[in-house]
């Protein structure tokens, strides 16, 4: 019961942002549509398992977000440098890499953030084996001991 209330609250906020006003009609229609959506997405609510929203985890996730933004900005400048340089020194390599993360959600977050960071691109993910394409050979080290995985391991504990 608590679970459905949290989901409904999130969906309603989303609905009100889309509707741009709060009135009786909007609320009734919103509750109806949110219930509908909840029923259809029943199996996908991974985030709402028992101990996801502890304070420690939220703190780690916020740190993670800040590091991600920093890395994305650095990544963009590096790619821009490579693109603008006169002779493009690129040495594309493909690396296989095993993560220590257990849950699917965290693995997906890791794969997506690897795609967003400097010169690395997740090509394939099968269970715990990630195949990563690197723009230059230097980036292989960044992938093998990434900051992201350490923080996500802390989140998972």
């Amino acid at each position: 019961m608590k679970r459905i209330l949290i989901v409904m609250f999130l969906f309603l906020i989303f609905w009100i942002i889309l509707a741009e006003k709060i009135s009786f009609e909007v609320a009734v229609l919103g509750i109806f549509i949110c219930l509908w959506t909840y029923v259809f997405n029943h199996g996908f609510n991974v985030i709402l398992t028992k101990n996801f929203w502890t304070l420690d985890k939220i703190r780690h996730m916020i740190i993670y977000l800040f590091i991600l933004v920093k890395e994305i900005v650095i990544a963009n400048f590096q790619v821009a440098k490579v693109v603008m340089s006169r002779d493009m020194k690129i040495t594309p390599t493909v690396v296989h890499f095993r993560t220590r993360l257990k849950s699917d959600l965290n693995r997906t977050i890791l794969a997506n953030s690897i795609t967003l960071t400097p010169g690395t691109l997740t090509v394939q993910m099968e269970n715990d084996l990630l195949t990563i394409h690197c723009l230059q050979k230097d980036y292989v080290e960044h992938v093998l001991n990434s900051k992201f995985e350490k923080i996500l391991l802390k989140v998972e504990e």
Partner: peptide, 24 residues
């Protein structure tokens, strides 16, 4: 920069690098 990278890089993988990152 993303567009220039898309034109200059040699194959699909490297092109995906430039397109994905600069777009974000």
């Amino acid at each position: 920069v993303g567009t220039i990278g898309l034109l200059r890089f040699p194959d699909l993988f490297t092109r995906a690098h430039s397109a994905a990152k600069c777009d974000t």
